[in-house]
Amino acid sequence: MNSPFQKDMWPALILIGVGTYGLYQAVSMSTFGAIFPQFAAGGMILGGLILVARVLFNKLETAKYAGELKRPLILISILLFWAVSFPLLGFIISSVISGLLAMLTALQEKIPLKSYAYQLGGILALILVIDQLFGNLLNVPLP
């Protein structure tokens, strides 16, 4: 039997946990409303159990993750900030801040100042265009 501390163990446990929560909530639902949640939750628990079994008993295979983790994590935080600040700060402000941060995150090598300016300009232009387009032309009120 393999050690239980494998990568695949995480999703298995989470699945069992979420599935149990789902079933627990489904108890307080009407008969009809509970059918599908129970089905889905049951499926999750079953799947989780199968995964646990696989982790413990099957041949191990380790998938390598290419690339660093740091930047994606930074980017997802930026995206979250962007989404939350979207209604609060308004489209333009939140997009300019987040867009700038995203650009810095995506920048892997040092580039000359001129390209830097061009790229920044491009992004700002995009933001302005979309704002004008949606706000005035299409009557979609952006925050």
Partner: peptide, 9 residues
């Protein structure tokens, strides 16, 4: 570096 923020927007 431009693609990422652009797609983000």
């Amino acid at each position: 570096s431009v693609l990422v923020p652009a797609i983000g927007v």
